[in-house]
């Protein structure tokens, strides 16, 4: 359904996307993951035809974005980052325009607008100006205008950004429903959204593919790098971060607050390996004659964990 071969794009000296290749089969929901600046948006813009690749090609339903851009665009529904809308228009006018821009007219357009507005929960706000919509409704409108012409491929750039948990849940359930019948590429930096929604994942870092595979594999990778915050009191003058780094299970130890005999240390520690967990740090503290005052696993900062994973994937290039 989607084949991407060696896509590259540079902005002056910056290589934003560097030789990216992957493919997506029918009814798959692919997560395009990467920290900010990884090249996700540039890659998506090449797929939707608003940027011309410096090298490589992509085929959407067999249509090359280079040689048959209009046909390739017709196969796509696209939600750009921040879900841009025409503030002056009514919701229904915006949807009519989106349908018209994809060649629907007359009764087919009216029918498409009615169907998509019901599907995306916009029926109640159809005759309200776009500028009066909440962020959640704007995202729904963005997805609705991507879906209005019933495209086989849906490309969504950060559809969850700036949404509250309830709105995220609503968008997630809408995407689940859509993914049953379409190919979806979902670009995000939220690992939990990818875990909840996607069948496959492509990890981008510094414009390159740092990893690709089934979401389950990513979850293993995520569990393999666990981050803890610990407060420790050392009995004598010790460099705790140096001592921690010497432990085989410790990938990284960062001092947040340096301690001394009277003041405890605060450190962030990343453990690697499937067997490593909090007890590893507890055992280390006992053996080092240190008193462990607090030990918390940091699970909310997924972007940070992901950043480390992607750094590992590409090295220092």
């Amino acid at each position: 359904m989607i084949e991407v071969h060696g896509l590259s794009k540079s902005y002056r000296d910056l290589r934003a996307v560097d030789d990216v290749s992957f493919d997506v089969g029918e009814r798959q929901l692919l997560g395009l993951l990467g920290p900010n600046g990884a090249g996700k948006t540039t890659l998506l813009r090449m797929l939707v035809g608003t940027l011309i690749p410096d090298a490589g090609d992509a085929r959407l339903q067999g249509c090359s974005v280079r040689t048959r851009p209009t046909e390739a665009k017709a196969a796509i529904g696209y939600l750009p980052e921040k879900a841009p809308c025409y503030e002056e228009l009514l919701v229904v006018e915006q949807l009519r325009f989106a349908a018209g821009a994809h060649g629907l007219a007359g009764s087919r357009r009216a029918e498409a607008v009615e169907q998509v507005s019901h599907r995306c929960g916009l029926a109640a706000v159809l005759h309200r100006p776009v500028r009066e919509l909440s962020l959640g409704f704007r995202r729904r409108l963005g997805i609705a205008q991507a879906l209005v012409h019933d495209p086989p491929i849906l490309i969504l750039d950060e559809p969850h950004s700036a949404l509250d948990p309830n709105q995220m849940r609503e968008i997630r359930s809408l995407l689940r429903e859509v993914a049953r019948e379409k190919v979806v590429i979902l670009s995000t930096h939220l690992l939990n959204e990818v875990e909840a929604l996607c069948d496959r994942v492509v990890l981008l870092s510094k414009g390159r593919v740092a990893g690709a595979g089934a979401t389950r594999e990513l979850s293993v990778a995520q569990r393999a790098a666990r981050r803890f915050r610990m407060r420790v009191r050392a009995p004598e003058k010790l460099e705790l971060d140096t001592l921690l780094r010497e432990q085989p299970a410790v990938d990284c130890a960062q001092v947040l607050e340096r301690g001394d005999r009277n003041k405890p240390w605060t450190l962030d520690v990343v453990l690697s390996g499937n067997q490593a967990d909090g007890s590893t740090l507890f055992d280390w503290a006992v053996q080092s004659n240190c008193r462990l005052l607090a030990l918390n696993e940091i699970s909310s900062d997924l972007e940070q964990v992901f950043g480390e994973l992607t750094e590992q994937g590409t090295g220092d290039d």
């Binding site: 209009t70 750009p80 841009p84 025409y86 821009a101």
Partner: peptide
């Protein structure tokens, strides 16, 4: 400014 040019150019309008 609104980002709608990207939306416009991603449609098969030309």
């Amino acid at each position: 400014r609104a980002g709608t040019l990207e939306l416009l150019r991603s449609a098969p309008l030309g």
